[in-house]
């Protein structure tokens, strides 16, 4: 299989010391995954599940107190291998934008409010593209028009554009160099539903056109349902289940996933939705064994002591649960047809 990114046994902890109180937060704990060429990989997880920390490591945006304690991260760009956690500044600069780029949640953090959009494009993309003056401009305009943005946006300031437009501009910025790998961190969370759908379809369209890989992070399962080819579910710093979107929704093999997909309310369905009791574990002091066991309806004694390994249960489908054979879709779970496109 042609992979772009290999993550093996990655452990990244926050090691903090404040006035003598030291704290170790295991934000990413032993995650192994690989991302293939030309796919959208959805990462789902709740707040403080460690998904943001994982993204920071992948994007080489890791800063103390977050540190990689163990494991490896390898990108394969054009036959070249690069590890973002150990690569030199020059190497990182070389791959940024051209091979690896990001779409962030708040567009304002990328777009400088006092600069016209074209200046921001020049700042970020001129060097990696290696084009000068008119050629660069033409390339940018062409790219923006493929995102249905008129060339006039280049002359505007960020505040003159609507939220949706701005987010499209940041997508344009992230994709103008045709990167092989794009990290999208909650890019549509702050947007309204109508605009959200537009932006999502745009990301998908441009991904398919360029054949690049996208890691798409959001807590919103209904976004994953429509965006992702594969989904990985992170719970308390661990990857608990990973599989093709369809299987994750219609035949989940981890009780947490089963709960997540069943708890989505739908128009036209008033079945009482289950609520998950308990609270997400504290990563500074996670429960032993399977970290989901205190909230799990299927938990047995083994779950309380032994960490379940990530087992392959079907093609491309892995789960970390001792009782995966007993996991059934819950009441209210979506009932789409598994076979539709298989």
């Amino acid at each position: 299989m042609d992979t772009v990114l290999d993550v093996k046994g990655l452990k990244a902890y926050y090691l903090m010391k404040y006035f003598g109180i030291s704290r170790e937060v295991r934000a990413v704990d032993d995650i192994t995954m690989s991302i293939r060429r030309n796919e959208i990989y959805g990462i789902a997880g709740e707040s403080s599940s460690g998904k943001t920390s994982l993204i920071k490591v992948l994007a080489a945006a890791m800063r103390p107190p977050l540190e990689v304690v163990d494991g490896s991260v390898r990108y394969h760009f054009n036959g070249e291998e690069i590890d973002p956690t150990t690569a030199s500044k020059e190497d990182l600069k070389r791959i940024r934008w051209k091979h690896l780029s990001y779409i962030m949640q708040g567009s304002m953090s990328v777009l400088n409010p006092v600069r016209r959009i074209e200046r921001t494009f020049a700042d970020f993309a001129k060097e990696p593209l290696g084009l000068s003056g008119p050629a660069f401009r033409e390339r940018v305009e062409q790219h923006l028009s493929s995102l249905k943005l008129p060339p006039s946006v280049l002359r505007s300031y960020p505040h003159e554009l609507s939220g949706g437009m701005r987010q499209r501009v940041t997508i344009g910025l992230a994709t103008v160099c045709h990167p092989e790998f794009i990290i999208a961190d909650e890019p549509t969370t702050a947007l309204d539903v109508v605009v959200q759908k537009e932006v999502l379809s745009m990301i998908r369209e441009i991904q398919q056109k360029m054949g690049s890989s996208v890691v798409f992070v959001t807590h919103d399962m209904s976004v994953h349902a429509n965006m992702a080819d594969r989904i990985g579910i992170i719970y308390a710093g661990r990857l608990v289940e990973e599989g093709p979107t369809r299987q994750m929704f219609f035949a989940p093999k981890h009780p947490y996933t089963a709960h997540l997909v069943a708890s989505l309310p739908r128009i036209g369905d008033t079945t009482q939705r289950p609520a998950l009791e308990g609270k997400p574990p504290n990563l500074a002091d996670p429960p032993p064994g399977c970290r989901f066991h205190p909230r799990c309806p299927l938990a047995i004694d083994k779950c309380r002591t032994d960490v379940p390994p990530l087992e392959t249960v079907d093609t491309d489908h892995r789960t970390a649960c001792w009782r995966w054979q007993d996991v059934r879709p819950l009441d209210g779970a979506p009932t789409g047809k598994m076979e539709a496109q298989l």
């Binding site: 539903v193 109508v194 959200q196 759908k197 537009e198 999502l200 379809s201 998908r204 919103d220 399962m221 209904s222 976004v223 349902a225 429509n226 965006m227 992702a228 080819d229 093709p244 979107t245 369809r246 994750m248 929704f249 219609f250 997909v261 989505l264 739908r266 128009i267 979506p334 009932t335 789409g336 539709a340 496109q341």
Partner: peptide, 16 residues
Amino acid sequence: ASVLSSEDAGQGKLAT
């Protein structure tokens, strides 16, 4: 129409 449905998960229905 803009509500993302989980009924057709994996079909990439995003057109507006």
